[in-house]
Design a protein around this nucleic acid. Structure first.
Lengths: 235, 235
DNA sequence: TAGACGCGTTAACACCGTTTACTATGCAAG
DNA sequence: CTTGCATAGTAAACGGTGTTAACGCGTCTA
């Protein structure tokens, strides 16, 4: 009636959807993944639990939608940090890596939902080669920075023919996702991304406490070493 | 009556405890972490749920005990692989890393329970610097192999005084857990362990599917690169 | 103005962890 | 042998959960 597309009903509906997800996230943060219950969300909204089924077909679907939102939030944070880091691709990579760690340790439960133990239902979905896969959606900015850096000044890698032989055929999905990625870039991206993930996940999951008091120092050293290997100036 | 220590009652008790944990693991493997319920375990044993409270104070305690057992199983697997790899410390490291990956991808749900998103209750326990910490109990064999290799033939690292300055004070728990560990060994261990964890966790959690079809190839290349950096002969 | 549809309700079912009260059984001492 | 007690199990119940079914009301539309 008023304007073009968003009819009144639709506006109310999306608002309710947002409110549900906000409530879910609040419960997630305050009480962990197990505290997210339809009845609690509905209670906080002054509703009854079955009403939520008008908006989500199941609790699992709600959690999945929330995880998607969190993925977007993280991806936006990371790309913003990359853009704020200037023109040097190594500086961009460093900024994006730091942004990833900062968001993750600042939102440990959300991190666990996205990157931690997959639920059986959520795992089945990620079994397919979804182009909307969390890893893909989120790895793209890193991948682009690696590619820019490679075109500007390639870094030393294992010999190309050796990499082609040993893992060339197995990186096809990655290489084709970005239009014929050089194998050196694909390999270095995967190596760096797995190192970043490992370090951050261990810190968030409290797996370093027994060994390290300040994981940030370890993170900074590791990142510096990696960037130096990519040709960045030390320190 | 019969012998000395294990009276009949005690034997039955430990047997029941084992049966409960076996049932819990079966449910865990078949249905994920959420499928582990006291009532289901009791049902499978032909018992009623409250009986389990004679053996475990809560479901959480049961799951924690199960996780401890799994940790022991994994640690035993890894150390056995290290001992089966001969005398060369780099070969031992390679064997242990492969054993870690093999066990993890062969037991993904168990891996998730040990190394994945921590439960609030389990996370509080790992907040203390427990010497029985999973990471500690499990990282020790790796640490010892790194140490043997270092004493035999040190590998190139960042300059010692730089490492001492940047992360010397923060690695105290780790360095004192093994009697004045050289900082080069401590740093290389942490770097290698986080890389191993990152790669394996991403594979187990299906975070590489969008990019890689054969994670094992990537794993082998990464491991070879790391061991070469440690002075091992290439291939 | 009728009817369809969106959105919410209540009631109910089948689970779950946990507690309580109670009953047998095994064991050890008088 | 009997008495007594700790142990291991039971049934019943409380409050919580996801989910479904049946129903009522408001809004939009033909």
């Amino acid at each position: 009636m008023t304007t073009t597309s968003p009819t009144r009903r639709e506006r109310l509906r999306t608002a309710t959807v947002s409110e549900i997800k906000e409530g879910a996230r609040r419960l997630l943060v305050s009480g962990g993944q197990q505290a997210v219950s339809l009845r609690a969300i509905a209670r906080d909204m002054g509703m009854t639990a079955p009403a939520i089924y008008r908006y989500f077909p199941s609790l699992e679907a709600l959690v999945k939608a929330l995880a998607d939102d969190l993925m977007d939030e993280l991806a936006a944070t990371v790309t913003a940090a990359g853009e704020a880091a200037g023109d040097d691709p190594t500086a961009q990579l460093g900024g994006m890596a730091r942004a990833f760690r900062r968001w993750s340790i600042g939102h440990p439960v959300e991190f666990g939902l996205i990157f931690g133990t997959p639920n059986p239902a959520l795992g089945d979905l990620s079994a397919e080669c979804d182009p909307n896969d969390p890893g893909s959606r989120f790895g793209r900015p890193y991948l682009e920075a690696f590619l820019r850096l490679w075109e500007r000044s390639p870094w030393p890698t294992p010999p190309r023919e050796l990499m082609e032989a040993r893992l060339g055929p197995y990186l096809e999905p990655l290489r084709q996702s970005q239009g014929d990625l050089p194998i050196e870039v694909a390999y270095t991206f995967l190596s760096g991304w797995s190192r970043l993930y490992g370090l951050v996940a261990m810190e968030v999951f409290n797996q370093l406490r027994w060994a390290v008091t300040e994981p940030e120092a370890l993170f900074e050293v590791e990142m510096a070493m990696f960037l130096i290997q990519l040709g960045a100036a030390p320190d």
